[in-house]
Design a protein around this nucleic acid. Structure first.
Lengths: 340, 340
DNA sequence: GATTTTTGTGTAAATGTTTACGCATTTTCT
DNA sequence: AGAAAATGCGTAAACATTTACACAAAAATC
């Protein structure tokens, strides 16, 4: 039913090549002709068929954004905000985002093969929460550039480019800051699967010459209620400040502090991680450690694009790793230590 | 470089038709053959080219999700959470989501024509915040089913299916509830462009026989700080409860109440709108009015699918409107009125 | 003014599938 | 067993573009 390029070009008296050139911007064509073609296209309602177009040009202008997480919710606030930044960064490079959410596990590899194998994507960004599952996933990426975004240490081994998120630099800033405010008993509320953060925390305390008290470290999961529980437990040990592995955990901690009649930051300081937009909206506003999401996004998207360009120029693809550091934002939830 | 169907089928000694049938599941093929083909494909790393495939079959299995908003941020928490639900609903129907964020205005129509014209999408879901701009946008949707998600009254006029969100049923529930708790002075914190909510609020107060005091209605925008300012203004008029047009505004109100030394809900009750996930995490947890997002998502996606099916069966497309009602969740931010 | 270069356009051969049609072969029915 | 129906598979014609190549006309060069 819709006009095709053959019929359309016949109607306006040019060749299909000319029409193609008018739309793609590639090849030689005079300005006058191009404008006439586009004008007629608008008037007659012709738009080139993208499938036929892509079948030739190979480019899709679509980047896959694949989240693989072992725990629900896959698409939490952090990942949503990251997705948004990636969508923006992709748009700047003329790419649209193809969003895919997945639970780590069975069927994933097949899905990924299907997604990347048929040329449907110019590239794929894999956001993963585990080293092993990530490595397994990469096996299935068939015919397109791949970028892995991870918070685990990861040396690129196959065809992937790695964007590694380093939360520790910001954590160190936070701890230094707390120490300078007189905090000597600093607690930590962790979560399953984020042992790395806990270990980093221990190391950083050592670096800052703050004593490590195992009783001040509470494991938990990642939800609000986990934050409440963990805080309740840690608070009994009288820390003067608590770091939480995520902002949502910190919200739980804040809430529980309130319920326990503790004043934040009067009695205890609380710091979250992720720098979610809503940390500015809490009462008191939440200090947090963030990794610049726009930079993560830009790095990942740029990397896909440059891999594509490399491919065209037939130069060998260099494995690479980009490390994105973190920052500490002090807000109202942190104050001078009132502890012993 | 990658194997094509001709070469692959030759290698394993069958015809291209057989390979195609093995992958698509359509047409006649024996189980044994299909399995052999798929097995060989895995072994040899063959995946069918999606562009060539789509060029024939016309189906894309991609639904566009197009947000057009007149104000930043386009992709706020509400829209993120909605997008997530739509992605889930689409996935259940075997469709992926193509995300597109846009500021209302110039270039939009052309972008939309380009997006929908070339057969790149099976359908498109337009989420808009204005009646007029939405109607203008629809003009540019060329060759695929379209669904509009809107919170404005909207009678379908052209080719669109409408999912209209009715916040008023939930608002009425909330007001009734507040009234039954003895609240007689109920304020409202609105925002630009949401006059409809304010008018609805007035009507509902009338229905519930609660006096309308214009001084208790504050316009503002939609941000956290707007919520703070508007609350400050309204609070001076001593309302016993305040409805806020969004949850983020309500967070601002909550924060300002705190800053003013008002206890929530002891001195004043606060209700938000949107039922964002984080409303459960505030202190006190925020009562809110929500519209079931999963239902919005399901309705929109199902509508696209059924329009596609109708198209195939050549039956005429019926314009339709689905209205999704709202609910009220009472949480800790609401209590018995202590006012005069 | 003749030669070379540049520019604008057309022709036609890819691009990699799907599917209508046809033909054996096998199964079902009477 | 013979006829009818169902099954499995191959051949080849779409599907709607892009782009290498060819060629004429215009512009630049000497």
């Amino acid at each position: 039913m819709p006009l095709d390029i053959v019929e359309f070009s016949k109607q306006i008296g040019v060749s299909t090549a000319t029409v193609s050139r008018a739309f793609s911007g590639r090849g030689r064509i005079s300005d006058k002709t191009r404008e006439r073609v586009l004008e007629e296209a608008r008037a007659r309602g012709f738009s080139p068929n993208v499938h036929a177009s892509r079948l030739n040009s190979k480019r899709t202008n679509q980047i896959g954004l694949y989240y693989s997480f072992s725990e629900d919710p896959i698409f939490d606030y952090y990942n949503m905000e990251l997705a948004q930044e990636i969508a923006k960064a992709a748009e700047k490079r003329g790419q649209a985002v193809h969003l895919e959410l997945s639970r780590t596990g069975k069927g994933e590899n097949q899905r990924l093969r299907q997604l990347t194998g048929g040329g449907g994507l110019d590239g794929i960004i894999l956001v993963v929460d585990g080293r092993t599952s990530g490595a397994r996933l990469i096996e299935s990426v068939q015919g397109c550039p791949v970028v892995v975004v991870t918070n685990r240490p990861w040396a690129p081994i196959k065809k992937e480019i790695v964007v590694e998120l380093d939360i520790f630099s910001g954590m160190a800033d936070a701890v230094r800051d707390l120490a300078s405010l007189g905090h000597k008993r600093i607690g930590f509320i962790g979560g399953t699967g984020i042992t790395a953060k806990v270990n980093g925390f221990r190391r950083i305390l050592g670096d800052c010459q703050v004593a490590v008290d195992p009783k001040l470290i509470a494991e938990g999961s990642v939800s609000f209620s986990d934050g409440q529980k963990a805080f309740h437990q840690v608070a009994s040990q009288r820390p003067s400040a608590v770091l939480c592995a995520t902002d949502v955990l910190a919200m739980g901690a804040l809430n529980e502090a309130n319920a326990m009649g503790l004043n934040v930051p009067g009695d205890i300081s609380i710091v979250g991680m992720d720098d979610l937009a809503f940390t500015a909206y809490t009462t008191p506003s939440l200090s947090t450690i963030g990794i610049p999401r726009s930079q993560i996004a830009k790095t990942a998207v740029d990397s896909i694009i440059s891999q594509l360009d490399d491919e065209e120029s037939e130069s060998p693809r260099a494995l690479a790793k980009h490390v994105i550091g973190s920052y500490y934002v002090q807000r109202a939830s942190v104050g001078i230590s009132t502890g012993a």
